[in-house]
Design a protein around this nucleic acid. Structure first.
Lengths: 332, 332
DNA sequence: TTGAAAGCGCTACCAG
DNA sequence: CTGGTAGCGCTTTCAA
């Protein structure tokens, strides 16, 4: 029960491979009776084209690469799910790699994907990534690339949410709820996403004439433990915050835990609002007020941007997917 | 800045391709000075072997396929993350496909993976899958397969948790906490996983001489809405349950919601225990008592089973990863 | 309508 | 130590 090649079919039928090839692909120049025979035999023998022969011939692999910081993080999993679905719909298979949010892994994944000759790459850079030359290099070799979720100041298509704007809205909401000392808990500053969100936060404070206090801004690392430490430090300040905006779903859990461990209540003592998934908010108590991101749309758009490039579109586009506030019970 | 082939390097150096090939692969039979030249030029020109030419030659792709019911579900995402990491460590890339828990999609994904000539497949069947002939067919064509999370009664290697046993323990715990009318909320019966867990549940009831009540067993479909409906029906029974064991993380959220919507308290009115991820349990209120599954280990073992097969091991193995109870605040 | 042959990039084998 | 050549499976071009 081995794989059958066109040649074997040709031999069996006593005809030439090229005829079989034509018949199989429905091209002209084959008598319909011969075509029937070929198709019948191919079906019987379970013929499947060898994609590597085809790739070798056409230098096309119908494969794209995806690099994601952490597939086990819900936000990314939803986006990836969408990318994969859209890609498959267009006949592309996805090679998905997980950088574990590490720069070195990311470079390695990229290397492997290039070696695999994927036709394009959709990537969300790791939180450690500072130098984007490995990604920019792709443009040099004409491999289409799209960034998602975390943008960078490089000339490459991307799809992100309205980071500054959504953080601005969230902060405004906290202010309207009576908060005077709002803290900001985010990822490392080098991520443009964090910078943007912080920008929105600061703007909102400024507009409301609230002081901007460096002690209330924590931007270290996106991890559960880091979030825990940071939040505890905030709560232990001589003048602790009465509200926190949290820019990453993973950190929301840390923040809750920390607040709880200090015997404080949400939202009475500390109001909380975060970037997170809706179904998680739903099972939390209190149900978390959050910035709802449309991961489906982000995934769809990311693939679309890549697909356009694969089809020859060379212009760099920056798509923004609107996130919106969903107020629940962790804000006043 | 195109890709360079061995031939181009050979031409540039005025030598034969076969010499270049040998030099590049570090084989014997090349003078060290010529080798240096070849390597230097290859590096300069950014030479990368064309994997399709290699695959065509060796009929090997260093690629495996993964089919998962829903990557956006945390449990699966964690397993997939591990599979991908282990695979990459061994030099395999993963083509990950998402069946959306649908039988038709699953067959389609499998088809595409076979067409891609992946060397092996790791699959968790959809909840709709009843007929496993598409998977069994793989054995016929000697493509290694491994099932994970959801086993089936087919002669194929698999890795699952101790389903019956863990459900037995969970039920026992509820009984020990004083529950008299324990309900079972699970996926469709055709999934062996559900059947096993139900078996453990029933055994535990039997051992404690508790009546087995069909009305308290709900096995319809794994989806948020289905779980909601089922739980509401349970709660609206003339004699509603005082505890529920939930066999799927998605359904835990539904159950909580339903209980809350009827104004009942957990665990005072209804105790709850479910199969779910720990970090979700942590942010819930009350913190959910749960069956902790080791997704990392399951992923690692799944790849290992496949890897063994890829290396010629033909014996069918069934690995069981022990899950254990973590009691929090949703049980008495 | 069909066949023959070249070539995609690489490796293996046999000559020199 | 190096070169030449055939062949992996497929498509394309040209010839019959």
């Amino acid at each position: 029960m081995k794989r059958v090649s066109q040649r074997e079919i040709a031999n069996l039928l006593g005809v030439n491979v090229s005829t079989v090839s034509r018949a199989l692909r429905g091209l002209e120049g084959v008598s319909s009776e011969l075509r029937q025979q070929v198709l019948a035999l191919a079906k019987e023998k379970g013929y499947r084209p060898n994609p590597f022969a085809v790739s070798l011939r056409y230098d096309t692999t119908r494969t794209i690469g995806v690099i994601v910081p952490d597939i086990s993080f819900n936000h990314f999993a939803h986006i990836v799910k969408r990318i994969e679905a859209e890609a498959r719909k267009e006949g592309y298979m996805c090679i998905i790699t997980d950088s574990d949010d590490k720069y070195e892994n990311e470079k390695n994944c990229l290397e492997l994907l290039i070696n695999m000759h994927v036709e394009g790459i959709i990537i969300c850079p790791s939180q450690e990534t500072n130098d984007f030359s490995h990604i920019q290099r792709l443009k040099k070799v004409h491999i289409p690339v799209v960034l998602f979720d975390r943008d960078a100041d490089i000339d490459i298509s991307s799809v992100v949410i309205n980071d500054a704007d959504s953080a601005h809205q969230a902060t405004k909401t906290l202010i309207d709820g009576g908060a005077k000392r709002i803290a900001f808990l985010g990822g490392p500053n080098r991520i443009k996403q964090t910078a943007e969100r912080k920008h929105g936060y600061i703007e909102a404070l400024r507009e409301s004439n609230l002081p901007i206090n460096k002690d209330l801004v924590k931007c270290s690392y996106i991890s559960y433990n880091s979030g825990l430490t940071d939040t505890l430090e905030l709560l232990d300040l001589p003048e602790p915050p009465d509200a926190i905006i949290v820019t990453h779903g993973l950190l929301v859990g840390s923040a809750m835990k920390a607040i709880d461990s200090r015997g404080l209540r949400i939202p009475e003592d500390v109001a909380l609002i975060g970037y997170m998934s809706d179904w998680v908010s739903d099972v939390m108590s209190p149900r978390m007020s959050f910035i709802k991101q449309n991961q489906r749309e982000m995934g769809t758009k990311a693939f679309k941007l890549l697909f356009d490039q694969l089809n020859g579109d060379t212009c760099v586009q920056h798509v923004i997917v609107k996130a919106r506030l969903e107020l629940r019970d962790s804000t006043r």
